[in-house]
């Protein structure tokens, strides 16, 4: 496949490339006589070897993929306050970096723009910063040591971030969602049940007699804790409260509060209003 090249031809190339210093390329690239040695034709000899390497990589990759399922947690729930957010592993170094003083809070600009811009900018423009002719890394001490230092820093930050995350999980006794989910699915399938979907399908049930005047008082006083649909927030859900408590018990709770954090409304709203609300809430039964 090697095409002929007249060795008596005087051709000057740009650097060690195949681009001629002057004049246009005639279409067929010259071969590697500039680097004498055992060069080999790309097609078919070398390509065949490349494909064999590709096959080995592909088989290894497939074995990995079949052995381990891609993780999937529970459906996104914006109200979930206990979830520990974690980016994908290759962003961890940046994520960890932004936790340090002088690059966070008041100095966050330095962390998000300053340092990354300098680092990535230097990487992007490396050929224009390191302009010497020398290519061997041990003869370019500044460029090489800066790169090794950055590598060490990125590795360190990634490891610290990950071990910090593991510590947090252990401390709070949290199992990562995708493990928990996979475990639940496995258990359900072992019991012979259907595969659970984990999607919330039940919409919040409608309120009973929502046009009652008591609801306007509820709207003013209660929804900041019990949510606009009374489905619960900081305070418990009031849907179906009528199944559990009578109107007198509800009135008692509203008047004096609870140890769980419900404030006492005695004096804040009239006794009449309390009676109105508790009678209306007592009607909130669910079948």
């Amino acid at each position: 496949m090697a095409h002929g090249h007249k060795s008596d031809e005087k051709v000057v190339y740009v650097g060690d490339s195949r681009v001629k210093k002057s004049g246009r390329i005639d279409g067929t690239p010259p071969d590697y006589t500039a680097f004498p040695g055992k060069s080999e034709a790309f097609i078919p000899n070398f390509l065949l070897k490349e494909w064999m390497v590709g096959c080995v990589v592909l088989v290894g990759f497939l074995v990995w993929v079949m052995a381990e399922a891609a993780p999937l947690g529970y459906p996104a729930d914006p109200t979930n306050a206990s979830f520990i957010p974690m980016p994908d592993w290759y962003f961890l170094f940046l994520y960890q970096f932004l936790k340090y003083p002088y690059v966070s809070q008041d100095y966050v600009l330095l962390g998000t723009i300053g340092v990354p811009a300098i680092m990535f900018g230097a990487l992007l423009l490396a050929p224009f910063l390191d302009t010497g002719k020398e290519r061997r890394f041990y003869r370019r001490p500044i460029a090489s040591s800066l790169m090794l230092l950055s590598l060490a820093a990125v590795t360190y930050l990634t490891v610290v971030s990950w071990s910090h995350y593991q510590d947090q999980l252990e401390e709070k006794g949290i199992v990562p969602e995708h493990h928990e989910r996979a475990e639940k699915v496995r258990e359900a399938l072992e019991r012979g049940e259907e595969r659970p979907s984990f999607l919330k399908t039940d919409a919040t049930p409608a309120l009973i007699e929502a046009d009652d005047p008591a609801f306007s008082i509820v709207e003013a006083q209660c929804i900041s804790c019990h949510a606009a649909d009374l489905g619960g927030g900081a305070g418990p859900s009031l849907i179906g409260i009528g199944n559990r408590l009578s109107s007198e018990e509800i009135a008692e709770i509203i008047t004096h509060g609870t140890e769980g954090g419900m404030p006492a409304f005695e004096g804040m709203i009239s006794d009449e209003e309390i009676t109105q609300i508790s009678e209306w809430l007592a009607k909130q039964t669910q079948s």
């Binding site: 993780p71 999937l72 947690g73 529970y74 459906p75 996104a76 729930d77 914006p78 979930n80 979830f83 520990i84 957010p85 974690m86 980016p87 994908d88 290759y90 962003f91 994520y95 932004l98 966050v108 600009l109 998000t112 723009i113 969602e177 995708h178």
Partner: peptide, 27 residues
């Protein structure tokens, strides 16, 4: 990698994207 992380729409996706965009918003 960043945009693909959100697509499965699980908690990990949701909160990582939220944090990521919040970091970008501090520019």
């Amino acid at each position: 990698g960043f945009t693909g992380y959100l697509l499965p729409w699980d908690n990990k996706a949701y909160f990582a994207t939220k944090v990521g965009v919040e970091i970008a918003a501090s520019v």
